[in-house]
Design a protein around this nucleic acid. Sequence first.
DNA 1: CACTGATCATGA
DNA 2: TCATGATCAGTG
Length: 228
Amino acid sequence: MLPLVPLTSPPATEAQLLHQAQRVAGYSLGELAAMAGLPIPKDLKRDKGWIGVLLERWLGASAGSKPEQDFAALGVELKTIPIDSQGRPLETTFVCVAPLTGNTGVTWEMSHVRHKLKRVLWVPIEGDRAIPLADRRVGAPLLWSPNEEEERQLSQDWEELMDMIVLGQVERITARHGEVMQLRPKAANSKALTEAIGAHGEPILTLPRGFYLKKNFTGALLARHFFA
DNA sequence: CACTGATCATGA
DNA sequence: TCATGATCAGTG
């Protein structure tokens, strides 16, 4: 048996990436943290991105805050997703920050959302808060690209939300806008402000927003794979 | 249950 | 401040 160790450099191929993700499937977060020499927090209250960082480490993603895909050379984005005992998502999935200004002429084709979601390695993680963090297990990974239907849904929601942003309606957007993708605050706190367009075309300051995939969307794509 | 706004850590 | 990684926690 080869020893199970984190990748220290990015995988060279998708197949290699997927294979490593399959190797860590079944292990608990406690086991993976110990093998990687990473301290494990008692819960996620103050370490919300800890699982994502742990998996980045195991799969050889370049950590950091670079505005590009986790595996740039492969064009693949890594997403961990908390699931319940039935394999259903427990949380929405953050995609990227929404640009609130400078959007004239921007199309779906060139959007950050489309680019981010072009190819995603989904790694489901047991997320029930009743399970101690260290005992939560990693599920089987799924390498995914949006099919025609999903691409249509995403682009439709993106158009709707971006139209409202461009037309100065950002503060009227609620999480109910969009069938599969929503716009919600994405900020350090409620005092963090960024520039946007007001109802009369004037500059305003508002909460930074992010695009999030709704659970119906991620739930369906996971189900399609695992319960087909 | 989903929605909603708020929040936490870290680094450039 | 904004980008990365996300979840928390209160309310209908």
